[in-house]
């Protein structure tokens, strides 16, 4: 009976806390399919080659409209990231021109990018971004993988607490990038807008960004690309890259968490037996 009460209380509390996650339901788009991510779960780590491919997709396709203002070139060489070398990062940064200044003469000037520079924005300001994109500002990509989500509904959102499903954002982005279709399923799509199965409301301002074969992937030893050059693969790779951009300390967090929890479990065990020993002196307790 006592155990039953504790379990009941646990279920009630978890249901209560999970209520918040239910918040944004209500649209009639299908749920994005779940993908297998190397960074999911308690021991998740990023696949460096996937991040490098995803970065290539971002750089060659997305970055022409989407800024990533919180990410610096140097981040690309940090541990737990795509694993570029410092030399590669310096060379990459130097291939961009960055506006700096004012100099001693009071003038703004252009110089080669450095590793410490932030990722350069495609547009000088929000107004320019809106003007170039039919009034819609392409969102910044720095934390987009955490800024997008979807509701899993009851009771899955409770299960997610235990299975550590946290990849709502990347699954949504992956689905969105593959969600374009010419068949609008009866949805009225105004000129200059596009139909997307997974976008809330189905009408999105972004044209289909990816096509098969658009981005060339590095070749393996056998001369074939290391991953298929398809929309499906591009979508996954760029989503993984965006997850890293949004949570560059993810690997460190999960590693630290494992050590912290292991330590705490041992400590709890020690305290449990100490408590048992101390309380064994008094009658009626165990």
């Amino acid at each position: 009976m006592k155990r039953f009460k504790v379990i009941a209380a646990a279920i009630l509390v978890s249901g209560f806390m999970g209520g918040a996650v239910l918040a944004d339901g209500g649209h009639d788009t299908p749920l994005p399919p779940k993908n297998d991510w190397t960074f999911a779960g308690p021991f998740g780590t990023f696949d460096k080659t996937q991040l490098q491919r995803g970065f290539k997709v971002y750089r060659e396709v997305c970055s022409s409209c989407h800024s990533m203002g919180l990410v610096s070139f140097r981040n690309l060489a940090q541990p737990g990231g795509p694993g570029f070398t410092e030399g590669q990062v310096k060379a990459l940064a130097a291939s961009y021109k960055v506006k700096d200044g004012p100099n001693d003469a009071g003038e703004m000037f252009e110089r080669d990018g450095r590793a410490a520079d932030r990722w350069p924005s495609p547009f000088p300001n929000k107004q320019a971004a809106a003007a170039a994109n039919g009034g819609a500002i392409p969102p910044d990509f720095s934390v987009i993988a955490k800024a997008r989500s979807y509701s899993r509904g009851f009771p899955l959102f409770l299960v997610d607490m235990f299975t550590q499903y946290q990849e709502h954002g990347v699954d949504y982005i992956t689905a969105l990038l593959q969600g374009y279709s010419d068949d609008t399923h009866g949805v009225e799509v105004p000129a200059g807008k596009y139909y997307n199965t997974f976008y809330p409301g189905n009408v999105i301002a972004m044209p289909k960004p990816l096509n098969d074969g658009q981005v060339e992937y590095p070749k393996g030893a056998d001369g074939r690309p290391q991953a298929p050059e398809t929309v499906a693969q591009y979508s996954k790779d760029v989503s993984a890259f965006l997850m890293w951009a949004a949570e560059p300390k993810l690997e460190q967090r999960k590693e630290t968490g494992f050590r912290v929890i292991l330590f705490l479990i041992v400590l709890a065990g020690l305290f449990y037996f100490t408590k048992k020993k101390i309380w064994s002196r008094v009658e009626g307790h165990h």
């Binding site: 806390m17 918040a20 996650v21 918040a23 944004d24 308690p42 969102p139 934390v143 987009i144 955490k146 800024a147 997008r148 989500s149 997610d160 607490m161 550590q164 946290q166 709502h168 954002g169 949004a246 967090r253 999960k254 630290t256 968490g257 494992f258 912290v260 929890i261 705490l264």
Partner: peptide, 18 residues
Amino acid sequence: SWFTFYIPNYLGHADNYI
């Protein structure tokens, strides 16, 4: 710790990253 290290955004709302 489970929440902090493994599901740190579970109790938050995605819109607050905008």
